[in-house]
Design a protein around this nucleic acid. Structure first.
Lengths: 199, 199, 199, 199
DNA sequence: GATGAATGAGACTTCATTCAT
DNA sequence: GATGAATGAAGTCTCATTCAT
């Protein structure tokens, strides 16, 4: 009795089209007309699913980030060595973020976030601060175990994510002239972090 | 030789106002009305100095980045140890970029660059690719001298700039909830890069 | 002979809902969506009974005014003293018009009539002109009988209805700050009309 | 040095055009496009003078009613016989209201007032309640002087205005089929009110 | 040069109407 | 008959750009 497959999911189509357009032109630069055309629906149809342009934008971000948040909540990595955690995370990012349009969602948060304080706050509270806290604990444990040397990282867990931000922005801006092998970049970074200092 | 000092420099005032507004609202979200008001000139006056909104935006970026490019061209750092170069660069960035509104110019390049291919190309050609090339040479020399261990960095000189990108974006998005000590962040990063591995 | 009692009368429900919404927001300001919701039917259902919004509006007015027209046609008041006629009419108005939502129908005719020439014409032809003509005859007879003094009223039978129009508009506009006792108002007016002048 | 005559007064032109359109189609039914065309300005120009459609509407009413309010404030009629006051008022109404487009402003207040509670309140507070209070005093004095008989009018000073409301609405709705001699109507009404009863 | 009132293309949004289910 | 998702014309409002002063 599968039947809903016949009904094209308008909401998903609109979200996909919106991601495309917002990624290409930013929030203010995107015309809902174009979103509608790309989604194959009429302009008015968008308003059946999203009360206005801003809600469309924010719902888009949230629906794309939801799984990420859930994944983070679910993952219990406290028993793993930090390097294993980072390698696993790195693989996930490369496969499930950089290999997909989710990359653009992250970029939208970076490029538009400051114009949507609510969104930035949500993102900070639900994603960033949790990851930072978890990372801090992992770093402390790894340092205690002698797995990694740089004690100061505990103060700047953001540094762990720096190459990811770099990669997202580079990809959008300069990959045309100088493509980036993100996987290798991340591997290189991990190697640097885990180099063992001389006593 | 007193000449234009009496006439306040309209062009500069407009550029400063434009930087403020573009930083706060992005390119598409900025109203020239607001730029004019902030600059203390009439709306039409903007068009005496810039042929349209896009030219204003691009001129703004170029005029703010010009000195940086010049500085890069002028600096002969090939004889210095890499660590000294990076510490000096780090200081400059903290003082002359993060301490000033130039920070916002960099952020604008990051957030709006992909909507202005011409600008991105200019920026890549004039700034990024040069810095990357210079950095590559510095890295090679430093590795040859045994100053630094991570040979793979030669392939990813971008990694040197990763914390800067992180800092610029973090500052705009999350500093409200979690301010960032950029100077210390960069120092920590340099320490990590220059840790000497065990043989 | 139970038949349609089980099926709630959609048409009536829609008309009732339409009266409510049109009264509150006027013709142009009313959304058929709201009419449908209030009537407890789907939006499309309205179109099964009324070919478009304008027809709905006009049918509403006609169906509410029909009984009034019929009542007027039926009433044979030619043998009654004018004062009795007016007192009876006054009672009817207070009870069957001001006490009910029919009051709003009259108001709609007054407020929207000029935008619907067809409606205004119908209303003038079927209701107003007949009442005016009948009233003229009653006035003539009353004057001939010495029941009332003001011969000039024959030329302006509209004046008889003036307090009604006043009351309908006042009720809608100002009753919040200053409610109107319509029954007493009409009684007062009748007293004024029937005061007997000194010879 | 008269010079401003050369500058066409846009604001006035827009108000005049707005009055025309609002009178013909009501608030919701009026298109600002049509107002602009009739005023001979571009659509955007309206927004230089009025922040939105509603403000345009309310400013229109207020600017047209302002003189009326001022006139009411200025008039000292307490020493005059009521009949003289009413005759004078009647003349003013016929000449300055019915003979002009101000008639339409009054009609707009009557037909749209209930959709603009703020406007209705303003109108009630500034115009209606003052006239009612003044009229009440005049009636009391006239009754005390034996100038008029109907003591109950003190309770319903609105009745004095009833023929005016009637005339405004009749004019808009039925004058095409049955024009109304407003001056004579008002004179007739005054005659009725001032008929002296038998003791 | 400088102004800012005016313009009008174009964006967002609403809602009467249709039609496949 | 009944539904309500979908449509798209049309309306309000914004803002980059122009130009007479």
């Amino acid at each position: 009795m599968v039947r809903t497959a016949a009904v094209p999911d308008r909401r998903e189509a609109i979200l996909a089209a919106a991601l495309h357009e917002f990624s290409e032109r930013g929030f203010a630069g995107t015309r809902l007309d174009d979103v509608a055309r790309r989604a194959g629906v009429a302009k008015g149809t968008i308003y059946l699913y999203f009360s206005d342009k801003e809600v469309l934008f924010q719902d888009l971000i949230r629906s794309a980030l939801g799984p990420v948040v859930a994944m983070i909540e679910a993952a219990d990595v406290s028993h793993l060595p930090l390097r294993a955690v980072m390698e696993r995370l790195s693989q996930t990012l490369v496969r499930d973020v950089f290999g997909t349009s989710r990359k653009n969602v992250i970029r939208l948060v970076l490029t538009e976030g400051s114009r949507f304080p609510k969104l930035a706050e949500f993102y900070y509270r639900e994603v960033i601060s949790r990851i930072m806290a978890a990372m801090r604990e992992l770093l402390k444990a790894a340092i205690a175990r002698g797995e990694i040397d740089h004690a100061a990282l505990v103060e700047f867990p953001q540094l762990i994510g720096a190459p990811l931000v770099l990669a997202v922005m580079w990809d959008a801006l300069f990959s045309r002239w100088s493509p980036l092998d993100v996987e290798k970049l991340l591997r290189t970074y991990i190697d640097i972090l885990f180099a063992r200092s001389r006593p």
